[in-house]
Design a protein around this nucleic acid. Sequence first.
RNA 1: GGUUCGGUAGCUCAGUUGGAUUAGAGCAGCAGCCUUCUAAGCUGCGGGUCAAGGGUUCGAGCCCCUUCCGAAUCACCA
Length: 599
Amino acid sequence: MEITKRIALAAAAAIKEMWGQEVAPESIQLQETRPEFEGNVTLVVFPFLRMSRKRPEETAQLLGECLMREVPDVVARFNVVKGFLNLVIAPAQWIGLLEEINGQERFGFTPVTEASPLVMIEYSSPNTNKPLHLGHVRNNLLGWALAQVMEANGNRVVKTNIVNDRGIHICKSMLAWLKWGNGETPETSGKKGDHLIGDYYVAFDKHYREEVKELVAQGMDEEQAKQEAPLIKEAHEMLVKWEQGDPEVRALWKKMNEWVYAGFDETYKALGVSFDKIYYESDTYLEGKKKVEEGLEKGFFYRREDGSVWADLTKEGLDEKLLLRSDGTSVYMTQDIGTAKLRYEDYPIDKMIYVVGNEQNYHFQVLSILLDKLGFKWGKDLVHFSYGMVELPNGKMKSREGTVVDADDLIQTMIEDASQMSADKVNKLEDITEAEAQEIARIVGMGALKYFILKVDARKNMLFNPEESIDFNGNTGPFIQYTYARIRSILRKAKAQGIEVPAKLPTTAELSEKEISLIQHLNDFADTVRQAGQDYNPSCIANYCYDLVKEYNQFYHDFSVLREEDKDKQVVRLALSEAVSKVVRNGLGLLGIEVPERM
RNA sequence: GGUUCGGUAGCUCAGUUGGAUUAGAGCAGCAGCCUUCUAAGCUGCGGGUCAAGGGUUCGAGCCCCUUCCGAAUCACCA
């Protein structure tokens, strides 16, 4: 049993015995002792002063004596500072804990069974008219990490993507391609499909703005000009044709979407993300209409004189929300309802998590209420995993102003920088093939990018400065990967010397403060994983990994793992190193960050 | 204006359910450390009114109220 748990139970029993009060063992505060005091675990006695009716010091003293009696194998000795009871734990307990951590391949993970709750996570959700940018990268990395975290906490997870493949935006790209494309394809141009389509989207916008400008110059007011410009009218006509199923338009749409999907797949692969099921809005938007009609019949919604359908949410403290336009076409909300319906037909999900930016907080507040009204049992408790925007030094990313950080460019730059970095190193790895070097550069470059994004609290807006490239030193992914690679190197060398870490560790070795602190730290991994799942926040795992590795590094410089004379101590330090590497591998794994055996 | 979220070092960020005279990392700056298990590292130094004010209590960066500043949102856009 865990050390803290045993202490908490014993303390609760002692309190009941001495002062006759029931205390839940979980409510007893146990924390790591500050380095300036002697001890490993500290029990805070302030909450029990009312029960003991004694001074803090006296209360702590009594509790300490009681614990020495009750769990003598755990508590070796204690001291009292004000209301803090500092406990020195018997070394054998720490050895036991270390064995336990090393004994499990996935320490801190909750196993998934058939009976585990089924959680669906929607993330990515791209539009098909432009390539992915840094904002999407944050979404994809968070979505993937969250899926891993939910699984580590004992949930069955279905990762899903809803592709926004229909609407005026894709018609704009199609039209521009028809007008100015001369039949250009990804093959003939050598461009990635999503970039090719993105270029035509930009081209449309450019010509469109010129038209508007010209109309304004002719005396038309701007709002009218925006609607009257020939290009936008043509795009609208194309959308109507699309909705009517015009074979020519549909064929073009299909062809161009395929190009985009091929491009996205490359980016997804580079990011290391994947999906179990992909939905397309072209399939779901009609379902949404049906569902709204259904709600209309049941009286949840109402129809206005112009034919548009609305939901009145004023009772919930929100506004009235449009669900169908007066011409009967669907809006964003309608599509999400349709998608929800199809999903629930496919999977009997218990919980739905939407990974979508915080700009849509209001949308999901409304969606939750609507899905609940329409009878989705998970609607009320749906989770909008709302993450903050990625900002640039001069504000938001705006594709029109060309101030976007392209995902593919960024990935390529990161890998090149990592490659350069290792080439510049003095103590380069020798006997390494070119292919291995490239693979390491990929792992390290992506590690830097992923860690940079995931270490920040998902809810907060974050800043990315393109002028300064993402760091490889300090609090970064590569630093953690580097420590991992070094530990692996130590373990390889130990093995070469014939030293293996046994399952049963020697108990005679004295443990230093640093070693005990490291074992405690390792043990916290389980709590961190749990917390990440509870708060839907992978960032605490990233920060945990950094803290752990930082502590190990300091330990590593104070002691020699391989040169220790005392065999027992050496084995314990090797076991500790192994445990750190394993926890780091699992922790980074949850974030989708790979670890290199050498770097 | 309503709603929601945020404000911690020059910059980027941590800070678990309130805990210990001194609120932590990294970057940037300065000074050291490669015959020693990988220097993508380690050790020092400087840098803070935790936006401001009040409250709750043994104790507040964290909880409550007020104010200031910033962001998002409040579309027959997606």
